[in-house]
């Protein structure tokens, strides 16, 4: 279980997160929705230690992870797929995937091979293009690659930042469905940040609505999806 209490993160004097508390249960999809600038990305970046919180606590499996480096956090089984199809476009598809497993290559080479095989089964298109540079892929393929890079580390918690950004609805559907299957079949815990509330709440177990760096609502996903007044007030539709 990921548990966050009273988390505050500042950029200069601006409080991007102003006292956030939430829980993401194991084996479930928790989605964080909210308008632009609500602090969704900052939340994920603080969990994976790309930003340092001002105060508050983050515990994963009952251990505090505040103050660890991003490299260390990956080793605890937390994988972050940042916003914007974050792959390294000058490296090949194969290299991008391999990169995510470098840290455990020496200790468990056989399992890394297996993990890469599983990824190619999940996204056959990536195997077809494994020798191509990541920069030559389409937006959807790049997002798949970014997720693969995270999955190859065999995480138990996946932080997914706006996977739908700039993608066609059909591709979004496919990616979200893949994440959903992973969660249901392997017990992966997912914290999914989305601006596209309908899609995210459609697959999630739980919904958290952020507004201006605070939690505005914390409800089961189905209930949040049905709450028209709430969505009108915070998301404008």
């Amino acid at each position: 279980m990921l548990e966050i209490k009273d988390l505050v993160t500042e950029y200069g004097s601006v409080k991007a997160l102003n006292g956030i508390s939430l829980v993401a249960h194991e084996g479930k999809i928790t989605t964080v929705i909210g308008a632009n600038g609500a602090g969704k990305s900052t939340l994920l970046r603080t969990i994976s230690a790309l930003e340092h919180p001002r105060s508050g606590s983050i515990t994963w499996k009952n251990k505090s992870i505040v103050g660890l480096s991003p490299e260390k956090i990956v080793r605890l089984g937390i994988a972050h797929v940042p916003e914007g199809h974050a792959v390294i476009s000058q490296l090949s598809v194969e290299e991008n995937i391999e990169m995510g497993a470098l840290f455990r290559m020496r200790s468990n080479k056989a399992d890394v091979r297996l993990a890469i095989q599983e990824i190619y089964q999940l996204f056959p298109r990536l195997e077809e293009r494994k020798k191509q540079l990541a920069g030559s892929l389409s937006g959807g393929e790049r997002q798949m690659l970014a997720i693969s890079r995270a999955l190859v580390s065999r995480p138990s918690l996946l932080l997914l930042d706006e996977p739908s950004l700039g993608l066609a609805p059909l591709v979004v559907e496919q990616i979200i469905q893949t994440v959903n299957d992973l969660c249901r079949n392997t017990g992966l815990t997912v914290l999914l940040v989305e601006q596209n509330a309908n899609t995210a709440l459609g697959v999630a177990d739980h919904g958290i609505l952020l507004s201006l760096g605070t939690v505005a609502a914390d409800l089961p996903a189905a209930q949040m999806k049905a709450d028209v007044a709430l969505r009108a007030a915070y998301l404008g539709y």
Binding site: E71, P82, L102, R149, S153
Partner: peptide, 11 residues
């Protein structure tokens, strides 16, 4: 090439 993605990969 991309320090942030590299760190998130555990490098």
């Amino acid at each position: 090439l991309n320090p942030e993605v590299a760190r998130l990969s555990g490098i």
